[in-house]
Each structure stands twice: as structure tokens, then as C-alpha cells.
Amino acid sequence: MAGGRHPFYKRLLKEYKSLSTNSLSGITMVKNDENLTEFIFRIEVTNHTLYKKEDLFHLSIIITSEYPVDSPRVQFVIFDEIVIDDDDKDSKGSENKDTVVVPNGVPKIPIHPHVYSNGHICLNLLGEDWTPACSIESVLLSIQSMLNTNDKNERPPDDAAYVKRAPLNPKSTTFIYHDDTV
């Protein structure tokens, strides 16, 4: 997809605008590319027993060339937001176009019975139950609520085996969605 706009660029632009203006609580867009096909979001889970304030969860969303007929590629990633410390900010403060508050913390892959330690997520919405009526926003909300409602401090039962042979792209994995309880 290098160069050239995505065929559904207009839709992506609408989604992008809506995401940047009516920001979702606890979800911050930390990075996006010009073509609006690659995004990184930071998801915060507050008041949770398992997830601490200093845990930083980053979700990578990559729009495939067949979007929105095809689901986006979504996975958790370890991502370092560039932390601008105060001294730096003072010396060339006016050059910063907007003041972005980067929380202090450790980037992590959230622990969840449906999230593998390599960041892959077993979620029906990202696979066979995707429809073009879903959107970047609906994916973000699903994943945020998936974390919010989780109370199990565990990885999927086959985590070690899966991570060893997992393809780079989680979309190449055929997940079997067997557990509706979490």
C-alpha cells in the first residue's frame, strides 16, 4: 500500500476526525501515519485490581487494503512514547506544537485469558464476526471493555505453545472462539 491513498480514504478520514475530536475516555491516539492506515493507541484501565496505573498498554491497529470489508490487523505492542522531560520542554518549548502528556510507566502486554504474551488477541470481532459496520472505534471500545471486565490474572492456556509457532500477523491465525464468559 506504499504511496497512494486507501480506496476507502474518505471513510478513514471520517473515522480519524471523529476519533480526534470526540476522544474516548481512557483511549489516546499516540501515533498515526499520513495515509491513516496505521495507528497506535494507548489504552488506560482505571480502578482495576489487575491493571495498575503505571502499566501502559499500546494497541496497534493496521488497516488492510481491503478494509472495511476485511477486519483491521489488531494487536498489543510494546511501544515507547518519546518522553520529553521538563528541562527539554523549557528550552525549546514553543516548538512543540501541542503539549502531549506522556504518563510515566512501563509498556506492557496486558494479562488477560484472551491476550497472548506476544500481543495477539483472540476476539471474534477481529476475525470471523467482523462486519463493515464495525469501525476503529468499535474495536477500541471492545478491547477496552474486555480488559475492564477481566478479573483473571492469567494468559490463554496454550500461550507458550502458541507464541512459539505464531505467525507474525495475528490475522493468519485461525482462532476458535470458545469462551464467551470473559
Binding site: P7, F8, Y9, K10, R11, K14, P68, A133
Partner: peptide, 14 residues
């Protein structure tokens, strides 16, 4: 249109 999110009186992306 629920797929391309363009008004019906507009066109599909193609």
C-alpha cells in the same frame, strides 16, 4: 452507506 460511510446520494469510493 454503512460500508463506505458516504451519503447514499454520493458515490461509492470506486
Amino acid at each position: 452507506c454503512g460500508i463506505c460511510r458516504v451519503a447514499f446520494d454520493g458515490t461509492c469510493p470506486n
